[in-house]
Design a binder for these strands. Structure first.
Lengths: 142, 142
DNA sequence: GTACAAAACTTGAATGATTCCAGTTTATGG
DNA sequence: CCATAAACTGGAATCATTCAAGTTTTGTAC
């Protein structure tokens, strides 16, 4: 487990530090968390980690491709450790909950735009907006 | 022109004010602009408009469905007056330029997620990420 | 094993888009 | 034309994120 994270970091030629291992563990256990939650989770193990360290770690891991940053409109940045499989997200408009959605049409299908305006496209990001089961039933019950 | 905007506002039961007409005109002439640019454009006509007025107007127009707010990850909010046709956007990673992309597969096609996790989905937003022609050629020329 | 240089981390201040608030002006229905 | 609710002004506050300077730690080379 922990050594797995160590291997991941070394493979990306990143130094192995306790804050980085703690962030990776936090993201494994809690998908789609925002920076503030990551800070809290990390501090459960390492109480004296600075917020700046977490910001630095998240940036380093994102740049290295070990985690993915997602940023639904109107929300703060969130992170997940599921990477490299071009999956998408459903976001609840009322509570902000996020769930993963596999690409329906196959592998990187959406990469085909009807008219790319000369842009060289390297990624298609899909966000499905709606209401999560919890919020939907809460609305009916009221 | 101007009276067209007036009709739009009245149809949405919004009061017709100069700041609102100016914002609508700015968005007609400049698609995909951020709030700060809207403020500058509006002040070209009405020098004494407060930034808060523009924020309020953009919110009112967005809520009324007269303009659409887009917020690519890592960028500030942008607005466009092309609404109601479920189109998408290509965003340049290096300069932030945005272009419109019609939905390739027909009308609201993307609304079908492979597994919706019980969410009631009402919109699928697609962002194509890449490099715009200008930035691409600049990179080659260097 | 020790030492060194680069990379990470700590602390604390700064930034910038956006929102909040109290008071004033303006648009619209009667 | 009047009254009232909606809009707007000016200015302060918020909050995620970044910047900056100094200290600690990691990995490596001797």
């Amino acid at each position: 487990m922990a050594s797995d994270f160590e291997a991941q970091l070394r493979a990306a030629s990143l130094r192995v530090t306790r804050p980085r291992l703690a962030v990776l563990a936090a993201l494994r256990d809690h998908p789609h968390v925002d920076t503030d939650t990551v800070i809290s989770l990390v501090r459960a193990d390492l109480p004296s980690v600075s917020h700046q360290a977490v910001y630095d770690v998240l940036r380093a891991l994102t740049d290295a491709g070990l985690v993915r940053r997602i940023e639904p409109a109107g929300a703060t940045a969130r992170y997940e450790s599921r990477v490299g499989d071009n999956h998408h997200h459903v976001v609840c408009r009322s509570c902000g909950a996020i769930a993963d959605v596999d690409c329906a049409v196959g592998h990187t299908p959406c990469l085909t735009a009807s008219d790319d305006h000369g842009f060289v496209i390297d990624e298609a990001e899909v966000v499905y907006w709606g209401t999560c089961p919890d919020c939907a039933s809460r609305r009916i019950a009221q």
